[in-house]
Amino acid sequence: MKEKDGFINCPEQQMILYVEKDDGKYGPMQTGSYISSNFLDDFFTKRKNLEKDLRDQLCLGKISPIQYYRILEDLTLSELSARVGIRKSKVKKHLDIKGFGDITAAELVKYALVFNVPVPNLLQVILVEINQEIESLITLENKTGNIFISQTGTANPYFVLTKIEEKKR
């Protein structure tokens, strides 16, 4: 690949591409990601649709919050089991709503740590209405107009502070 063909304008995601320079030598050039430059909106649309579909199933009691996050974070049952340190058969039970009812607080903490979410978010989805559309906070990435939502952990592993504030204009 020639250097002149390698340039992609994507400041959000820079990368190194090895190309043929004008003098015929091969070497690195800093450029942008093709897929992020052209198709990032498509990624977010798919993620938003997947989250909505899983949330609907969650609300109907078809799946548990563990299954909701497992699919969103693309983890297999074996991988999730190894990461939380809970045996596979038990994790499998936690994926449906009946088995989730038997979960302990200590197990919730383990799952929350792996999913990198506050423990209370295993029992709730925070929704934000923006531009007359309701969307989950996890897919909004804080593009929430003039309000800002932050969740901060505390020394108590079962407790989180959720702060909703108006952005200063």
Binding site: Y26, I35, D42
Partner: peptide
Amino acid sequence: LSHEIMKINILLEDQGTGGAGFRFMYAT
């Protein structure tokens, strides 16, 4: 399916390969 097919691009280009699934870097 669309997501997984598009991941081919990510695995070959974006996940730190130097382009073309490391082939450009190995050529260098």
